[in-house]
């Protein structure tokens, strides 16, 4: 690490801590939300500095982008019910002081644990490198997520599916934008939507050999969907076709795993010759489902426009 990048890293780390402190102590929730989004963008820069471009992409697209949009939307729903945005600023009292001291002690201990790792700690990187030729892809992150530990990813996709079920359970009321969207937003959507679809596809494809993959592609696709919803409010009701798309990614992943098990391999054991194409197939299905998941989380209701329950 050379001196000039050390300064950059220190500034970045300092800014992150400062932003975290500010957004927790602000009483204006709108400002706190904006700071939260800025925090996400800076955090993704920190991941870039840590040589983890995949995580950086996911953080920027999901942590800052989709989550930021969700928080802004939640704030707007709160506003619609009256002045709820002036949160209590965090004042230091005894329990909070004890909690803060505990957390700081834990943080110090964690820092010390990291610093006491043997120099040149490599984790499982040599095992990963040895297995890469049999994984079907070139990007080790994609190999881990979809092949070595694909079972974890399968269950993570299940968690996203459950999030949609949770939204439908709560049956939140649809909340169209407060003002009719102007023509400019329409123009923006028309101009941006096609390249967004292309970029999502590119990220998915690139995941095989470079940073990218299903989650990042889905976030871009979902951003397009959210933008479209803002320009021309639509409804993602709990209807058959919507449920099919939501469950599609998980179903394809699970069925691929089970088919391989019945063909004589083990569950999710991707044969070396077909691993690449199978991963692309699973990721394509997952991307479509995850993108719609994010859109449903944003639009969030189980009723059609007439207010009937369509489920």
């Amino acid at each position: 690490m050379s001196g000039d990048t050390l300064v950059l890293d220190l500034v970045l780390a300092g800014l992150l801590v400062f932003l975290a402190w500010r957004l927790l102590t602000l009483s204006d929730l709108f400002k706190a939300t904006v700071l939260f989004i800025v925090f996400g963008v800076l955090l993704s820069l920190a991941w870039v500095r840590l040589n983890a471009p995949d995580v950086a992409l996911a953080e920027a697209a999901i942590g800052a982008g989709v989550t930021g949009a969700l928080v802004l939307d939640a704030l707007r729903r709160l506003d619609a019910r009256g002045p709820a945005d002036e949160a209590q600023p965090l004042r230091l009292n005894l329990p909070r002081l004890v909690g803060a001291l505990l957390v700081m002690g834990l943080g110090a201990f964690l820092l010390w644990s990291v610093l006491s790792l043997p120099p040149g700690w490599r984790g499982l990187s040599s095992e990963t490198a040895a297995a890469m030729p049999r994984s079907g892809v070139v990007n080790p992150v994609t190999a881990s997520l979809l092949n070595f530990r694909g079972y974890d990813t399968l269950l993570e996709i299940a968690v996203l599916m459950l999030a949609v079920l949770g939204v439908w359970t709560l049956n939140a009321e649809p909340m169209p934008p407060a003002e009719p969207a102007g023509p400019i937003l329409d123009v923006l959507v028309k101009a941006l939507l096609p390249p967004m679809v292309v970029v999502a596809g590119y990220l998915l494809w690139a995941g095989g050999h470079a940073p990218g993959g299903a989650f990042q592609g889905a976030a871009v696709l979902a951003a397009g969907g959210i933008l479209l919803h803002l320009a021309r409010p639509f409804n993602v009701a709990n209807r058959g076709v919507v449920r099919l798309v939501i469950g599609f990614g998980f179903a394809v992943f699970l069925l691929v795993g089970l088919t391989l098990a019945t063909l004589g391999g083990r569950f999710l054991e991707l044969p070396e010759r077909h691993a690449g194409i199978l991963i692309l197939m699973i990721e394509t299905a997952a991307m479509i489902s995850i993108a719609l998941t994010f859109v449903v989380l944003f639009v969030g209701n189980a009723r059609d426009n007439a207010g009937r329950d369509t489920s």
Partner: peptide
């Protein structure tokens, strides 16, 4: 486009008067 949208929202709000919420859309 974002600039236009922010400006539009600002104008709408100033028309509504100082009592209106700062950040409705």
């Amino acid at each position: 486009c974002a600039c236009y949208l922010v400006a539009e929202a600002t104008l709408l709000q100033s028309r509504r008067g100082p009592g209106a919420r700062r950040h409705v859309r």
